[in-house]
């Protein structure tokens, strides 16, 4: 198929960006979206134009490194990661716009590459259970009811790609944060630090410049791992409880 791509080019963090049009031809429907960009980059390289910078690593939908705004949708038209999106989701003659994640908390580094260090700093603020190596009790000493274990697992499936932030009109990181709060909060091991965790993470989230949640739900719809919106309810409930208990 032949396509017209309109791609955000930006030389550096402070440079002014612009949309640039690139036609591509002979695209196979078996290609992944990123392989289609690989083909374009090979052509640019051959013409002496600098290839388009974009992030990707595992290309099997689990590392969370890739992420593009494709015709206005985070990770494009399917519920999956950009690397798992295939060209059979598009038709001959389509015009596709490709942009980086847009959020104050995710500044653009170059072209389609953004800095998601703010997510790491939210985890640093409290997204862990303090258990030094070697200090752990025997694994079977603390049984975990299966429904709680399953819900923790569901929330732990988050890959930290940032699609939730990119999809949210407020650029809120609440789904990402709610997933971690729920994952650790469902487990008995996560209880001792539960109050401090939510307060510290929310404080860091706001400090990073993410917006608040106004229950629109775009985050959950865009999430390639289908993290449900109710993790945000959990986060709010935990936060209220923690503040009432004077954390």
């Amino acid at each position: 198929m032949n396509l017209t791509l309109k791609i955000w080019r930006q030389a550096g963090p402070k440079a002014k960006g612009e949309m640039v049009t690139y036609p591509v031809t002979d695209i196979s429907e078996d290609m992944s979206f990123l392989e289609m960009l690989d083909v374009l980059n090979e052509q640019l390289n051959a013409r002496g134009e600098e290839p388009i910078a974009f992030d990707s690593d595992c290309r099997e939908g689990i590392c969370g490194m890739c992420g593009l705004m494709i015709s206005g949708k985070a990770h494009g038209p399917e519920v999956t990661t950009t690397c798992q999106l295939h060209m059979r989701s598009f038709s001959d003659g389509d015009e596709i716009t490709i942009e980086p994640w847009r959020a104050d908390a995710f500044p653009v580094i170059k072209d389609l590459v953004v800095d998601r260090g703010s997510f790491d700093r939210i985890i640093q603020a409290g997204g862990f259970i303090s258990a030094n190596t070697g200090s752990a009790p025997e694994a079977h000493s603390v049984p975990v009811p299966k429904p709680k274990a399953d819900r923790a697992f569901m929330a732990a499936a988050c890959i930290g790609c940032g699609a939730c932030v990119a999809a949210c009109p407020n650029a809120s990181g609440m789904l990402f944060m709610g997933a971690k709060i729920t994952h650790l909060g469902e487990l008995p091991q996560g209880q001792p630090e539960r109050d401090a965790r939510v307060v510290n993470m929310v404080s860091q989230h706001d400090h990073e410049g993410f917006g608040g949640c106004t229950n629109i739900g775009e985050c959950s719809s865009a999430c390639p791992k289908e993290i449900p919106l109710d993790v945000i309810n959990q986060l709010n409930k935990d936060l209220r409880g923690a503040l009432m208990r004077g954390e």
């Binding site: 259970i129 258990a131 190596t133 752990a136 694994a139 603390v142 697992f153 732990a156 994952h183 091991q189």
Partner: peptide, 22 residues
């Protein structure tokens, strides 16, 4: 065997049986 203990303490959500054990 120490690895499993350590990971469970960190909150790694391994598959569990209905009795709550791994």
């Amino acid at each position: 065997t120490n690895i499993i203990d350590q990971c469970v303490a960190q909150g790694v959500p391994f598959a569990r049986e209905y009795g709550g054990l791994l």
